[in-house]
Measured scan of single mutants.
Amino acid sequence: CHSECLGNCSQPDDPTKCVACRNFYLDGRCVETCPPPYYHFQDWRCVNFSFCQDLHHKCKNSRRQGCHQYVIHNNKCIPECPSGYTMNSSNLLCTPCLGPCPKVCHLLEGEKTIDSVTSAQELRGCTVINGSLIINIRGGNNLAAELEANLGLIEEISGYLKIRRSYALVSLSFFRKLRLIRGETLEIGNYSFYALDNQNLRQLWDWSKHNLTITQGKLFFHYNPKLCLSEIHKMEEVSGTKGRQERNDIALKTNGDQASCENELLKFSYIRTSFDKILLRWEPYWPPDFRDLLGFMLFYKEAPYQNVTEFDGQDACGSNSWTVVDIDPPLRSNDPKSQNHPGWLMRGLKPWTQYAIFVKTLVTFSDERRTYGAKSDIIYVQTDATNPSVPLDPISVSNSSSQIILKWKPPSDPNGNITHYLVFWERQAEDSELFELDYCLKGLKLPSRTWSPPFESEDSQKHNQSEYEDSAGECCSCPKTDSQILKELEESSFRKTFEDYLHNVVFVPRKT
């Protein structure tokens, strides 16, 4: 048989008469490798580009789960590009990614509803959504962080984005990388972005840091009482949809009607710091009717980097990364020049730590249904340095008659930039024990000054392991946590139920 035959053949030295091919099969003959313009397919066939392209389009058009959109890589027609490569849609070739590779997620039936953290986790790592997304989240724990972890990498949506009755959302900033909504599939009414009845939605994105392009379709905003109209108009300008909307697409009466839409800028007039305090004062603000001013709200939190936005980490279910302080308005003076500047002394802060701070007014709604208010920009203030805590785990070892090696770990709280350490030492008198000992005694162990690591005695271990207080009263049991108490109650309830079950099964009433 021919060298490319495997198993047997019907005619000697003829690659077209093989029972099976050793390498690849091409047009009725066995070959060692697939010549151009053919590609290896499933490690035994040679196919042309049209064959591989037909497989790709067949799966793409069917949208069946589990099928493969075949691509070409290293002269092979394979189910998908290997790690580190992405497909070129024009020629199906796998090309190296520039940075992290995109991950295209194809949605069944063309859309997916995100109504819980669990459903959001199914899209973790996706960068391109081939379909439409509907966000409908009523509640949950730590929602802002969970949504950002699972949806934060999405850069492109081919269909539309719909935010509907998501009472738990305060902001859409968890879509931190969303840059493009194509609108290839539109919501009824030709809408590519749809926001309806979101009672706590206050911000779409921080438009000073976020760009969003909507290729096709219109915007729809109705019944978002805490979303200011200025935020919607800003989205029109940034996304390129200005002029597409009709009169009733953006409701003037049901958007922002319960919001404090600040239209003035508060400026800080005085800032002073110490290692654990920050004193702030800002310019006074009074609405047209000074009785509408209820006070100020001061927001602050630790910020290692200057990239904080107002609604980071917030949701309507209680999660809030900001510390909020309510401040009463100052006494009002008739003389504008003698107006008191409101302020606040922030206490209990960490030394040498940068804080993000902003302040906003708290006002009631005027009778004319106009909203007044003022808010400052987010500023960054760093507390002063102070003395560091003591170095940890000092170790001293003498390696000769004239040297001592000293080692330690950095302090747990540096409280500033540590530039150097101060080492103090003092000579001590020799131990009298060394002169009084009889060095001729056998088995004498000389006193040693070398360091030995501390260890816990058996008594201390027994005390720590004991669940009861000892007789001397030195140790006591740790208080039980809520989960331990709940577990004990469940076990007790189970024992009672099981005992009742045994009584009912074992003891049967005697027939009379």
Rank of each mutant, 00 (worst) to 15 (best):
residue 168 A to M: 07
residue 268 F to D: 00
residue 241 T to M: 14
residue 159 G to M: 01
residue 191 Y to W: 05
residue 122 E to P: 06
residue 332 R to V: 11
residue 285 Y to L: 05
residue 237 E to M: 13
residue 207 W to Y: 05
residue 362 L to C: 04
residue 271 I to A: 04
residue 106 H to T: 11
residue 138 R to I: 03
residue 262 E to P: 09
residue 239 S to D: 05
residue 301 K to P: 00
residue 280 L to N: 00
residue 170 V to I: 14
residue 306 Q to T: 14
residue 108 L to Y: 14
residue 174 F to W: 08
residue 347 R to M: 08
residue 243 G to V: 01
residue 287 P to K: 03
residue 332 R to M: 03
residue 188 I to W: 09
residue 371 T to W: 13
residue 262 E to M: 11
residue 321 S to T: 11
residue 152 G to V: 02
residue 113 T to H: 09
residue 140 G to Y: 06
residue 298 L to Q: 00
residue 390 V to G: 08
residue 274 S to G: 03
residue 127 T to Q: 07
residue 184 E to W: 09
residue 171 S to Q: 11
residue 399 N to A: 14
residue 335 D to P: 13
residue 404 I to S: 05
residue 239 S to P: 02
residue 211 N to P: 06
residue 106 H to L: 08
residue 189 G to W: 11
residue 397 V to I: 15
residue 357 I to G: 01
residue 371 T to F: 05
residue 294 L to Q: 06
residue 120 A to H: 08
residue 369 R to I: 11
residue 246 E to Q: 08
residue 281 R to N: 11
residue 104 V to W: 14
residue 166 S to K: 00
residue 207 W to D: 08
residue 254 T to D: 10
residue 311 F to Q: 12
residue 110 G to Q: 13
residue 274 S to P: 00
residue 226 K to N: 10
residue 161 L to P: 01
residue 148 E to C: 02
residue 401 S to H: 09
residue 312 D to V: 13
residue 269 S to K: 10
residue 217 G to P: 01
residue 300 Y to N: 02
residue 173 S to I: 07
residue 309 T to I: 00
residue 281 R to K: 13
residue 119 S to T: 09
residue 239 S to W: 03
residue 108 L to D: 01
residue 307 N to S: 11
residue 215 T to F: 03
residue 155 E to L: 05
residue 304 P to V: 04
residue 171 S to I: 01
residue 387 N to D: 02
residue 118 T to H: 11
residue 376 S to T: 04
residue 263 N to D: 01
residue 305 Y to A: 07
residue 254 T to M: 11
residue 213 T to Y: 04
residue 206 D to R: 06
residue 342 P to I: 12
residue 154 I to V: 12
residue 298 L to A: 11
residue 229 L to D: 07
residue 185 T to M: 05
residue 193 F to Y: 05
residue 141 N to A: 09
residue 199 Q to V: 14
residue 241 T to V: 08
residue 144 A to C: 03
residue 227 L to T: 03
residue 406 L to F: 09
residue 323 T to A: 13
residue 267 K to W: 07
residue 141 N to D: 05
residue 354 Q to I: 05
residue 116 S to H: 11
residue 394 P to H: 05
residue 139 G to T: 06
residue 261 C to T: 02
residue 290 F to P: 13
residue 310 E to Y: 13
residue 226 K to T: 10
residue 309 T to R: 12
residue 297 M to W: 15
residue 330 P to F: 15
residue 252 L to S: 11
residue 221 F to P: 00
residue 223 Y to P: 00
residue 149 A to T: 08
residue 258 Q to T: 12
residue 185 T to R: 08
residue 183 G to S: 06
residue 309 T to Q: 11
residue 326 D to H: 03
residue 319 S to L: 05
residue 142 N to P: 05
residue 310 E to F: 03
residue 154 I to C: 05
residue 402 S to A: 10
residue 245 Q to M: 15
residue 337 K to A: 08
residue 315 D to M: 08
residue 303 A to Y: 04
residue 311 F to Y: 15
residue 398 S to V: 07
residue 302 E to Y: 08
residue 393 D to M: 14
residue 106 H to S: 11
residue 382 Q to K: 08
residue 342 P to Y: 06
residue 402 S to L: 12
residue 217 G to T: 00
residue 271 I to D: 01
residue 396 S to A: 15
residue 251 A to R: 05
residue 192 S to L: 00
residue 314 Q to K: 15
residue 209 K to S: 10
residue 164 R to V: 05
residue 368 E to I: 11
residue 129 I to C: 14
residue 380 Y to R: 02
residue 362 L to Q: 09
residue 246 E to S: 06
residue 242 K to H: 15
residue 127 T to L: 11
residue 283 E to F: 13
residue 213 T to L: 09
residue 169 L to N: 01
residue 370 R to Y: 11
residue 407 K to M: 14
residue 161 L to A: 04
residue 398 S to L: 04
residue 211 N to S: 07
residue 314 Q to L: 10
residue 341 H to C: 08
residue 234 K to R: 13
residue 271 I to M: 06
residue 333 S to L: 12
residue 381 V to P: 02
residue 290 F to R: 07
residue 225 P to S: 06
residue 226 K to D: 09
residue 164 R to H: 05
residue 260 S to P: 13
residue 190 N to I: 13
residue 147 L to S: 02
residue 211 N to V: 07
residue 294 L to M: 13
residue 260 S to H: 09
residue 313 G to I: 04
residue 133 L to N: 00
residue 275 F to Y: 04
residue 265 L to T: 03
residue 335 D to R: 11
residue 276 D to V: 01
residue 324 V to C: 04
residue 112 K to Y: 14
residue 142 N to D: 03
residue 295 G to K: 14
residue 261 C to Y: 01
residue 119 S to Y: 10
residue 128 V to C: 05
residue 297 M to T: 14
residue 326 D to C: 04
residue 304 P to A: 06
residue 402 S to R: 04
residue 342 P to G: 15
residue 206 D to N: 05
residue 260 S to K: 08
residue 383 T to W: 00
residue 393 D to I: 02
residue 331 L to R: 05
residue 273 T to I: 07
residue 266 L to S: 01
residue 193 F to L: 11
residue 281 R to I: 13
residue 376 S to P: 01
residue 141 N to I: 10
residue 183 G to V: 01
residue 244 R to H: 12
residue 172 L to V: 08
residue 258 Q to A: 04
residue 237 E to W: 15
residue 301 K to V: 03
residue 173 S to Q: 07
residue 125 G to A: 07
residue 401 S to Q: 13
residue 172 L to N: 01
residue 232 I to P: 07
residue 203 Q to G: 00
residue 188 I to L: 11
residue 349 L to N: 00
residue 407 K to S: 02
residue 260 S to E: 10
residue 244 R to N: 08
residue 373 G to W: 13
residue 261 C to Q: 02
residue 182 R to F: 08
residue 316 A to R: 10
residue 324 V to Y: 14
residue 325 V to P: 00
residue 331 L to Q: 10
residue 139 G to R: 12
residue 352 W to K: 13
residue 297 M to I: 10
residue 262 E to A: 14
residue 190 N to P: 12
